[in-house]
Simulated assay, not measured.
Amino acid sequence: MANIELTGVDEILNKLQEIGANVGRLENKALKNAAEPVLEDSKANVPVRTGKLKKGLKITNVKKKEEIKYILVGVDKGDNSEIFYGKFIEFGTSKRSAHPFLQPAYEKNKNTIKEIIAETLKEGLK
């Protein structure tokens, strides 16, 4: 019977555990990084009257629903109840035509979002 001795297995197992522990933080970082261009373009295109809506545009913390992580760009309802009208500007009303600023920012940056997520994950897993 042949004897086989493996060296370095403990080191590999420790490295895998270390990577596993950091994956959640890395995913969160990738999502936040990817949301930045959407936020910037949204702020660049939002109509400004008082500046409150532009100032109120934010990136939320990472959320999780049914094992899917996501992030939102827009107005946080809790912090900025006085700028609830952002949805009326984005989608319009019966008396006011829509002036979208969030959807076009997302559409413009769809490919960039994917690239930023991939790049952040690659860098973090090196």
Rank of each mutant, 00 (worst) to 15 (best):
G124A: 01
I59M: 09
K29L: 03
N111K: 10
S81F: 14
E67T: 13
A98H: 08
N33C: 00
E119V: 09
D10L: 13
G124P: 14
H99P: 03
E36P: 06
L72E: 15
E82Y: 12
F88R: 05
E107V: 14
L72F: 13
E90I: 06
N3G: 08
S42N: 03
N28W: 08
K58T: 06
L72G: 13
L102T: 11
E67V: 08
V23S: 04
T7N: 06
I4K: 07
S42K: 00
E18I: 02
R25T: 15
R96V: 12
F91W: 14
E123M: 00
N61W: 06
E67D: 14
E67C: 06
E66V: 07
K32G: 01
V73L: 02
L16I: 07
P37A: 10
K55A: 14
Y85H: 10
L16R: 03
T7P: 01
E107D: 15
L121T: 00
K29C: 00
V62H: 03
G78C: 02
N80G: 03
V9C: 10
L57S: 01
G74W: 11
A98G: 09
I59E: 06
K32W: 01
S94R: 15
I83M: 10
E82L: 05
N45G: 03
A21E: 08
K55Q: 09
K29P: 10
F91C: 09
L31W: 06
A44S: 11
E115S: 09
V73A: 00
N109Y: 12
I83L: 14
I19P: 01
R96Y: 09
G24W: 01
E5T: 15
R49F: 09
Q17S: 12
G51M: 07
N45D: 04
V46A: 01
N33G: 01
E5M: 09
I12A: 08
N22V: 13
I89R: 04
E123D: 07
E82H: 12
D10E: 14
H99V: 15
A105N: 08
A118D: 13
N80W: 06
K15A: 13
N45E: 02
K110L: 15
F91P: 11
V23L: 12
A34L: 11
G86D: 12
V46E: 03
P37S: 04
K126G: 15
E5H: 09
I12M: 08
G20R: 00
K63E: 12
L16A: 13
T7V: 02
K95P: 14
V75W: 05
P100Y: 07
S81N: 13
E67G: 14
L13S: 07
E123W: 01
A2K: 10
E82F: 06
I68P: 03
K52P: 04
I83A: 08
E18H: 10
N45A: 10
G74R: 04
Q17R: 06
I12T: 04
A98V: 07
V9L: 14
K126M: 07
K87W: 13
A98R: 13
K95F: 10
V48T: 11
N111V: 13
K65W: 05
K58W: 03
K52Q: 03
N22W: 11
K29R: 00
I19F: 11
A118C: 08
T60S: 03
